[in-house]
């Protein structure tokens, strides 16, 4: 018998996998992940390595942004886009949440709705844009529909999966306490999936902003996506970049709002999605 050497796990700070992570390292790494791209951008633009028409400097983008905010047009764009995103997002939640819960709860609904929903999820929404214009015209309705169809199927399937993760015992104990199916839906399945519903909405609102830009490619008169496309036509890269920054900031703010709502409203739960 050969004497194989004993192997031990070497301790590591940076590569630690669920073995603790020092508090001080986290903000440093987060800062690095945000600062490094800005540094690369600054190096390329200030250093004059690229044509400033293609890549303006950070200071140019910020000063353009300040003028855009000053002349009021950007605020119109922000509110127009925000309105479309909220409308599409809310409709997708109103339809997606009950459909997802029904699919996750009842075998029958899973087959009846799931076949369509799971297929539709793979449907490239961009390919449907021409059809949506034919069906719904070129005004607000078609833009909201694009956002709605872009995320509603994801809402439904993610929520259906969350319902299926409720342990059988949790449902069984409710039955033995006298719950009927309606009690089960209202008093067990809905509260048990509430954290996942909130997490699903938080993840999918990012998708809503993606589809907004797509929807504003269609004969829009205003909006952040519209402004980005128009800036491209006049080679105003600084304007386009500032609009992207604005979308990012709004995205971060909604994310933060969802996290805050989660913490305040569901103190018993833990969010597992990042």
């Amino acid at each position: 018998m050969t004497d194989s050497p004993r192997r031990y796990l070497k301790p590591s700070v940076f590569w630690s996998i669920r073995q603790g992570f020092p508090r001080w390292l986290q903000p440093i790494l987060i800062a690095a992940s945000l600062i490094v791209p800005v540094l690369i951008w600054s190096f390329l633009s200030y250093g004059g390595y690229v044509n400033p028409k293609f890549l303006p400097t950070p200071t140019e983008v910020i000063s353009t942004g300040i003028t855009m905010l000053g002349d009021g047009e950007l605020m119109v764009d922000i509110f127009a886009s925000l309105g479309r995103v909220m409308a599409g997002f809310i409709f997708a939640a109103i339809i997606g949440i009950p459909v997802g819960i029904a699919m996750g709860t009842f075998y029958s609904m899973d087959s009846l709705l799931g076949g369509f929903v799971r297929t539709a999820r793979y449907m490239p929404i961009a390919a449907f844009v021409p059809l949506i214009i034919i069906w719904a015209g070129i005004d607000e309705v078609s833009k909201i529909l694009i956002i709605f169809f872009g995320i509603v199927f994801y809402n439904a399937t993610m929520i259906a999966d969350a319902v299926k993760f409720i342990p059988n015992e949790t449902l069984n104990v409710a039955y033995t306490l006298g719950a009927n199916r309606l009690d089960l839906l209202r008093s067990v399945i809905l509260p048990a999936t509430l954290p996942n519903i909130l997490d699903t909405l938080r993840v999918n609102i990012a998708g809503a902003w993606n589809f907004l830009v797509l929807s504003e490619l269609i004969a829009a008169q205003n909006g952040l996506g519209f402004t980005i496309v128009r800036s491209q036509r006049y080679l105003q890269t600084d304007k386009a970049m500032f609009c992207i920054v604005v979308i990012c900031v709004i995205g971060l703010a909604t994310d933060f709002a969802f996290r805050l709502a989660f913490r305040l409203w569901l103190p018993w739960a833990e969010s597992k999605m990042s």
Binding site: E169, N172, V173, T176, L177, S187, A192, L266
Partner: peptide, 27 residues
């Protein structure tokens, strides 16, 4: 199943979204 046969399980016994008192009050 019905309330005439109460049951206690080994795992996942309590509803995590309800306080202790509300868990007891569930039925």
């Amino acid at each position: 199943p019905g309330a005439d046969r109460g049951m206690v399980f080994q795992h996942y016994t309590l509803f995590p979204w309800l306080s202790v008192a509300d868990n007891v009050a569930f039925g």
